[in-house]
Amino acid sequence: MNLANTTTRDRVFVVGTGVTGILFGVGLVLSGMTKPDKVIGFLDMFGGAWDPSLGLVMVGAIAVHAVLFRVILRRQSPLLDAKFHVPTRTDIDSRLVAGAALFGIGWGLGGVCPGPGLIGATSLASTLLLFVGGLVAGMALFQVTNKA
């Protein structure tokens, strides 16, 4: 395999990200993140019947990635790109806080975040199709109203 060949590299890039999507999806399903009632049970800390499970999803994911991230960064470059694209911003602006606040409201309202929404929508359940329709509409709305 000649990775200097752009076409070959692009193909491997697409296949690689597709495989990543599958692995990510399996992790989401196995963890319980694709069960809206479980997400709501996790966020409902003060209702007397708290289910802390999904906190452990974050613990497991961060434990693995915190180590591998540092190991990978020792490389000169990623396998399929000339350089790493790690975000470097450190400023806390109102857009970050307002955006995260809105995301949390929507997450608590529906019990679904973007990945699990896409996975669940394949069941063609009307509530999840409506969530994904709203998700795309909300992203499009942002794009239209925030043309830089």
């Binding site: 307002a98 955006g99 995260a100 606040a101 809105l102 995301f103 949390g104 409201i105 929507g106 997450w107 309202l109 529906g110 679904v112 975040c113 973007p114 929404g117 409506l130 969530f131 994904v132 329709g133 709203g134 998700l135 795309v136 509409a137 909300g138 992203m139 499009a140 709305l141 942002f142």
Partner: peptide
């Protein structure tokens, strides 16, 4: 919820 998550 979808709209708010998408925009946020």
């Amino acid at each position: 919820a979808g709209v708010v998550v998408g925009y946020g």
